[in-house]
């Protein structure tokens, strides 16, 4: 009892971790993010869902400043995103990112992939970095693959290494952009399980995914995007069983039939 209430107070005291205010982004004439307002509390798990081209990836990439925005503001842990340079690099290290296509460094071993950022960005010494990397690889269940190269691993194993690589930076928030959509069906669960465990451990997460099982069991909130706008926000059960907007109803009827 006491433990729970202490944790709750912590959340309230430390407040919002990721805040987007009237964010706009164009690709040429295409208005991909339209007045996006989104606030994510510490420890919250938010699933972003929506049709292809609705701007989900762009949203994630904007939060990590892999894409610039045209107007509005994005703040991480109270600090606005710097424009470029060293400070931006430091802030990026606080935001872990997991890509659909894994993007493990192809010329480095699994272990080196997880050590690199610790050494080059966090300036950890090699021994500590290796220890931590091995611990993380163990946590995501690929400790025995440490000395292999990414191409020698299955997609599911590569994605779990990518999660470990991001975690090695001790990020404040983790972004996942369709982490399981490039995977063979039998490998999806091993990745989702790792993410579920992460959510249980209290990690703040923004997850673009169409895996409804994950959304229902791990998410605090579902954000539905269409045509560059946030159309609907709700707790998962309510969203999936009783969507309010027509766009969401239409979208859900399509993915539920597959």
């Amino acid at each position: 009892m006491t433990k729970v209430s202490v944790a709750k107070e912590d959340v309230a005291a430390s407040g919002d971790l990721v805040v987007l205010k009237s964010v706009n982004k164009h690709f040429g004439a295409l208005h991909v993010l339209q007045d996006i307002d989104l606030t994510i509390a510490r420890g919250e798990v938010v699933v972003v869902i929506g049709p292809s081209g609705s701007g989900k990836s762009t949203l994630c990439r904007a939060i990590n400043r892999l894409e610039t925005i045209d107007s509005g503001a994005i703040a991480i842990d109270g600090k606005p995103l710097p424009a470029e340079g060293k400070e931006l690099a430091r802030l990026r290290a606080d935001v872990g990112m997991v890509f659909q296509s894994f993007n493990l460094f192809a010329h480095k071993t699994v272990l080196e992939n997880v050590m690199l950022g610790q050494i080059k960005v966090r300036k950890a010494d090699k021994k500590k970095a290796e220890e931590k990397a091995r611990g993380l690889l163990d946590r995501v269940g690929v400790a025995n693959q440490a000395d292999k190269y990414p191409a020698q691993l299955s997609g599911g194993q590569q994605q779990r290494v990518a999660i470990a690589r991001a975690l090695a930076m001790d990020p404040k928030v983790m972004l996942f952009d369709e982490p399981t959509s490039a995977l063979d069906p039998e490998m999806i669960n091993e990745v989702l399980e790792v993410m579920q465990q992460l959510a249980r451990d209290g990690m703040t997460m923004i997850v673009v995914t169409h895996e409804m099982g994950f959304a229902r069991s791990a998410a605090n909130r579902v954000v539905f995007m269409a045509d560059g706008k946030i159309v609907e926000e709700a707790v998962p059960d309510q969203f999936f069983s009783n969507p309010r907007s027509d766009r969401a109803k239409d979208f859900l009827s399509k993915i539920l039939h597959h």
Partner: peptide
């Protein structure tokens, strides 16, 4: 390009 993006994402300059 994903290689450079992943590298930027962990905070490399």
């Amino acid at each position: 390009v994903g290689q450079a993006e992943a590298a930027r994402a962990i905070g490399l300059s």
